[in-house]
Design a protein around this nucleic acid. Structure first.
Lengths: 247, 247
DNA sequence: CGAAGTTTTGAGGACCTTCAAAAGTTGTGG
DNA sequence: CCACAACTTTTGAAGGTCCTCAAAACTTCG
């Protein structure tokens, strides 16, 4: 971890503004909020389960996950966060972190003090609504993940996760046609899917053999989107692309 | 479904006030919000996936769940809501319901217009924070459910669900010592746990044989809480009993 | 070029599923 | 208050998906 540098909340602000118009005053106040940039290497722990963080962070570049550890040492990743995503907005109000946060590749995180966020909401209710909506979308993703691990078999759930990544990366302008970078190893990916690494490996081989995906290094190419959608039942409503209700 | 009767937001308000003090003005405004009581029989559908509800509802008495249906007909229940819980607070801002809501027993629901909630938040930012915190607790439960179906075997996850029920019912003052009513059949419960009804039945038999629980009709008696906690790894931090950060 | 990390393979077994039917329980109307 | 229908729980049996363990092959990086 390097020393904190001057950060900028703009990438996250941009994401909020893609969803709903903010007044110039609110946007300016948000853009002026104090923030620090920190760069993490791959596989570093940013927040640990049980911490009481004083800041929340969003991803400027890279990939992080939130995870929970069980006593037997097994682990479940409960969410991924790509560039522009707020990682632990919840910590603004909840005092205890019930999950941990780690990086999967070299990642730039921008940290903002809880107090500054709360003051911003106080001054600009529209920002409060935008942040609330952001947590509602997160909650929708959590629900879909419960469905994924609860009711889809390994092939379906792997295909579903890849399509979710593609959809979110595309919304963030990070897709390159049908291909995207997924800088995560199979052990971590299996922790997100609730299966064993060995079985994930065989599942990926099956997806490749079925010509649904193509991979080289850590690039995923969606060779047959139609087929992936048919296999997984992916449908993006749960990501709420329509944005929040307007007043 | 009967004709709507005059309702009262007090049970939900009471839940919010157990977590954080509200100013008398805010509490009074909340208590005065228009609301309608509706009574549903068991196994009725309240909201369907894809609906665009104009109201949100909380449970006055009874039990409801939120679920998602897959194309092959299988189903995952993603949450349960007991008396005092807001069921679909998220619909205040999200336009499209990405899951359905159904009852499991005779249930009284109190409906409140989205517009009235939004106005209340506008007038009383402290209520906005209380509602945001409520959705954050919900999101914490969703994450734990992902862990439950992703990384715990059938015995562990069944024990975990029962302890979560016990903990939440106790917080709502609905526990009777070590026993509580769970008005839900094994088919629906298996949809919440991501296992087959047959396997849930055998799992429950195992829990009874291990003298961890005792059941008669739809009453659950936690015969050995210690043992259930040891088996499931249940720990209530994810329910955020500490309440929201105070300003 | 060696070391560490990651992916792949093999084999055996555990957990959980499906299907089908029986047994038990609850609710309703005559 | 009994009889019957509908629903729910339980049982049995066979089979599939996924797991664990262990080692080999491959890749990445200093």
């Amino acid at each position: 971890m390097s020393t904190p540098l001057h950060g900028s909340p703009r990438p996250y602000l941009a994401k909020l503004e893609r969803r709903q118009r903010l007044s110039p005053a609110a946007a300016a106040a948000f853009a002026g909020i104090p923030s620090q940039l920190r760069v993490y290497e791959a596989n570093q722990y940013v927040v640990s389960e049980g911490d009481r963080p004083k800041q929340c962070r969003f991803v400027q570049s890279g990939l992080v996950s939130r995870y929970k550890t069980l006593r037997n040492g097994s682990r479940q990743i409960v969410s991924f966060h790509i560039a522009g995503d707020m990682v632990d907005l919840q910590s603004v109000l909840t005092q205890l972190a019930d999950d941990g946060v780690q990086t999967h590749t070299r990642t730039e995180l921008v940290a903002i003090d809880h107090g500054d966020i709360l003051r911003l909401i106080e001054d600009f209710p529209e920002i409060g609504r935008a942040l609330w909506f952001d947590t509602l979308v997160d909650a929708g993703i959590f629900r879909e993940w419960t469905v994924n691990v609860g009711r889809r078999d390994a092939r379906e759930r792997t295909a579903h996760l890849l399509l979710e990544f593609a959809w979110r990366l595309n919304a963030a302008g990070l897709m390159d046609g049908d291909s995207f970078e997924l800088p995560i190893n199979q052990v971590d990916m299996s922790d997100a899917l609730g299966i064993s690494p060995v079985h994930l490996n065989r599942t990926l081989q099956w997806l490749r053999a079925a010509r649904l995906i193509h991979t080289h290094s850590r690039t995923i190419i969606l060779q047959d989107r139609e087929g992936l959608v048919r296999l997984s039942g992916f449908s993006p409503e749960y990501l709420h692309p329509e944005g929040p209700r307007q007043l």
